[in-house]
C-alpha cells in the first residue's frame, strides 16, 4: 500500500477502469478488476488468472537485483531521427512522457544473490520496447562492458521488434548486438535471457534467442512473425497456445518458465552455478 501513488499507470495492458476510480486496474486477459496496490504487491501478476502483466523496467530491477546494487549506465542516451522519418520526433516525445525513460532499455551493473553482472531490461511503455539505434547501442555497450570486466549478462526482453521509424538502422542493430553477444560468448562468459510478453520480431531473431540459458515468463508470446501474418499463410485458426512460452518450450527453444516469484531465486542460483566460468575457470 505504501507504494501507491509512486507509480503511474504501468502500461497499456492495465487500463484504468475509469477516470474517477484510479485505484483499480482491469486485467487485460481475464478482465478482473484488481486494486492497483494489490497488483503491485503481487508483482503485477493478476490474482485471478495468473497473467503476468506488463511491468516497468525499473520495477523489475528493483525486484531482481540486490538492494541498492544497481548502477545505471548510459542513461542519458537519446534517439535521433536518423532518417528524418515523418512524425518520429513526436512519437519519441510521447514515449518519453509516458515511460519517463529516455529510451526503451535500461542498462547497468548490479548484483543478484551477491553475484555481480551486467543487466539490460527493456521497457514496454517506450514504443512497445521497439529496437532502434539507441536500444542496440546500449545493449551492445552492456555486453562490451561485461567482456571487459569478465561478467555475465542478464537480458530481460519485451519488444514488438525493430523500430520502423529508424528503417535500416534499426535492422542493423540486430547484427551489432549479435556480434557483441558472440564476443561475450567467445570469452566464455554466461548470458541469460528472460523473455517476457511479448518478445517478437527482430529481438526474437537476435539476442533473445542467443542466450546460453533462455528463461521465459508464463504465457509470454515469443516468436518471429506476427500472428496476423502467419494466419495469411496458414489459412486456418492458429493452434491453441501458439507462440506462447509454454508451446515454444515444447518446441525446444526455451529452457525454463519462471513465475515472477521464482525469478530472483533461480537466476541467483544459475549465476552461482556458473561461477567457475565467471572467475575465468579458477
Amino acid at each position: 500500500m505504501k507504494f501507491q501513488g509512486l507509480l503511474k499507470p504501468a502500461c497499456n495492458s492495465l487500463e484504468d477502469e475509469s477516470e474517477k476510480n484510479l485505484d483499480v486496474r482491469v486485467c487485460s486477459r481475464c478482465g478482473s478488476s484488481v486494486l492497483k496496490s494489490d497488483l503491485r504487491a503481487n508483482l503485477y501478476i493478476c490474482p485471478e488468472c495468473n497473467a503476468h502483466l506488463m511491468m516497468r523496467a525499473r520495477r523489475r530491477i528493483e525486484i531482481l537485483c540486490d538492494k541498492s546494487s544497481f548502477v545505471e549506465i548510459d542513461k542519458g542516451m537519446e534517439s535521433e531521427n536518423l532518417l528524418g522519418f515523418p512524425g518520429y520526433e513526436d512519437k519519441i516525445r510521447a514515449a518519453k512522457e509516458k515511460s519517463r525513460e529516455n529510451e526503451a532499455v535500461v542498462c547497468g551493473k548490479a548484483r543478484i544473490g551477491g553475484n555481480p553482472l551486467y543487466i539490460f531490461v527493456m521497457e514496454p511503455s517506450f514504443m512497445m520496447g521497439s529496437m532502434g539505434s539507441i536500444v542496440g547501442e546500449k545493449i551492445t555497450r552492456c555486453f562490451e562492458k561485461a567482456i571487459e570486466e569478465k561478467l555475465p549478462v542478464l537480458g530481460i526482453t519485451v519488444s514488438g521488434g525493430a523500430r520502423m521509424q529508424e528503417g535500416i538502422f534499426s535492422l542493423m542493430q540486430m547484427t551489432k548486438v549479435s556480434a557483441a553477444v558472440k564476443r561475450h560468448d567467445d570469452a566464455g562468459l554466461l548470458y541469460m535471457a528472460l523473455l517476457t510478453n511479448p518478445t517478437t520480431g527482430g529481438v526474437d531473431a537476435s539476442f533473445a534467442m542467443q542466450a546460453d540459458i533462455i528463461l521465459a515468463e508464463p504465457g509470454a508470446r515469443v516468436g518471429f512473425a506476427g500472428p496476423r501474418v502467419i494466419e495469411q499463410t496458414y489459412r486456418k485458426k492458429l493452434p491453441d497456445g501458439f507462440q506462447k512460452a509454454e508451446a515454444v518450450m515444447e518446441c525446444g527453444f526455451i529452457d525454463m518458465i519462471l513465475s515472477r516469484f521464482d525469478q530472483k531465486r533461480v537466476i541467483a542460483s544459475l549465476l552461482d552455478m556458473h561461477k567457475e566460468e565467471i572467475d575465468g575457470g579458477i
Partner: peptide, 8 residues
C-alpha cells in the same frame, strides 16, 4: 525456430 535460426 525461425527466430532462433536467424539469430544463430
Amino acid at each position: 525456430g525461425q527466430g532462433q535460426a536467424i539469430a544463430e
